[in-house]
Simulated scan of single mutants.
Amino acid sequence: MTLRTTDLGTGRQTLTTTAFGYGAMSLAGAYGPIDEPAALKLLQEIYDRGVTFIDTANIYGLGLSETILGRFLEGRRDDITLATKCGIEPKGEAGKRSVNGRPEHIQEQIDLSLQRLGTDYVDLYYLHRPDPDVPIEESVGALGELISAGKVRSIGLSEVTAQEIRRAHQTHPITAIQSEWSIFARDVEEYVIPTCAELGIGFVAFSPVARGLLTDRFDPEALGESDARHKFPWFAPENLGHNHQLANKARQMAADAGLPTPGLALAWLFTKAAGADLKLSIIPGTRYVQHLDELLTGLDGQLSVELVAALDALADEVSGDRSFSPAWVSGGREALLPRASGAHSM
């Protein structure tokens, strides 16, 4: 199976990859258990469907996701566009970690990631979060040095503001910006996406189905005790019931359009990106092949102007913010998350 591709970035820093990728946080059990044999089988199914863009990070399972990917990559490395990240301290639990954008930390973490991944380079290396105590120019300068060293082929940033993007891009060409973007999470449309389009920077959207809310089998009662979603306001007891019912509106629209809800969610994103003249790749994560196939239907979904407008309206009804801490995401630092309450530490 051959999937359509997209060009992230411009000029010498252009990275051509599939417009549909795989977010490998799920391999580390963030949304429920998956053992290594099942993870490797899932990766094979993903590969067989033509998905060759795989995104991970050093903190996913404190190296577990990278380690599993390293085993899968044996004999396939040249076929895969591989992205990983640094910049969040790889210790502690989600929601309580600190950031670290110091050059020496970046240089240390790339070597550890390459060792786990079993490769001598990654195609795209992100600063996972900007460090408020380190000028972004210093962090990006260190990332650029990794290109010169042959360890990295292009660089990106995750959850950065439009202003941070401009400062970073002046230091070294940025290939991709990664952030959460979905029917329910739209703050990046205000400043970040127009900036990416203007500068020719690609955009990589994570959590495109709102961490599972925009699927057809989401069960609010089935979240396990260790499920990472408990840390996010959308899934707090006071918000979850409302948001689940709001997602039912999207499910009905999907049914009327003849699409599974995840397919509708991805088709909406591609439609919005086309309207913004934005180069987009989407990296949903899943542990199930059936979910993967439902997501892939979004690559070919054709949405009417009326349907897009109806989906656009849902974001205003979401209860709670997309992050446990406004400072942790670009929209929070750009004062675009007005519903913030009960913020946790990073």
Score class of each variant (00 low, 15 high):
1 M>K: 10
7 D>I: 15
13 Q>H: 10
14 T>N: 05
16 T>M: 04
20 F>Y: 09
22 Y>L: 05
22 Y>K: 00
39 A>K: 01
45 E>R: 15
47 Y>W: 15
49 R>W: 05
52 T>P: 02
53 F>D: 01
64 L>A: 07
70 G>P: 09
72 F>Y: 04
74 E>M: 08
80 I>L: 03
82 L>N: 02
89 E>G: 00
89 E>I: 12
91 K>N: 01
94 A>T: 12
96 K>F: 02
99 V>M: 12
99 V>C: 04
107 Q>R: 12
110 I>Y: 07
118 G>T: 04
123 D>T: 04
124 L>R: 03
124 L>T: 02
126 Y>D: 01
131 D>A: 07
133 D>I: 00
134 V>A: 07
136 I>S: 00
142 A>Q: 08
145 E>L: 08
146 L>N: 08
166 R>A: 14
166 R>D: 10
171 T>L: 06
174 I>S: 00
184 F>I: 07
188 V>N: 06
190 E>N: 08
193 I>A: 11
197 A>I: 06
200 G>E: 14
208 P>F: 09
213 L>R: 06
213 L>P: 10
216 D>G: 09
217 R>I: 02
218 F>D: 04
220 P>W: 07
230 H>S: 02
231 K>W: 12
244 H>Q: 02
245 Q>A: 15
247 A>M: 07
248 N>W: 04
249 K>S: 13
250 A>R: 06
250 A>Q: 11
250 A>D: 11
254 A>E: 10
255 A>R: 14
256 D>S: 10
257 A>N: 07
258 G>E: 01
261 T>H: 06
262 P>H: 09
263 G>P: 04
269 L>Y: 14
274 A>D: 15
276 A>F: 05
278 L>H: 02
281 S>A: 15
287 R>E: 11
287 R>G: 13
289 V>D: 06
290 Q>C: 01
292 L>K: 08
296 L>H: 01
299 L>K: 02
301 G>C: 13
307 L>M: 15
315 A>V: 14
322 R>P: 06
323 S>L: 07
325 S>L: 04
332 G>K: 12
338 P>R: 12
341 S>N: 14
346 M>Q: 08
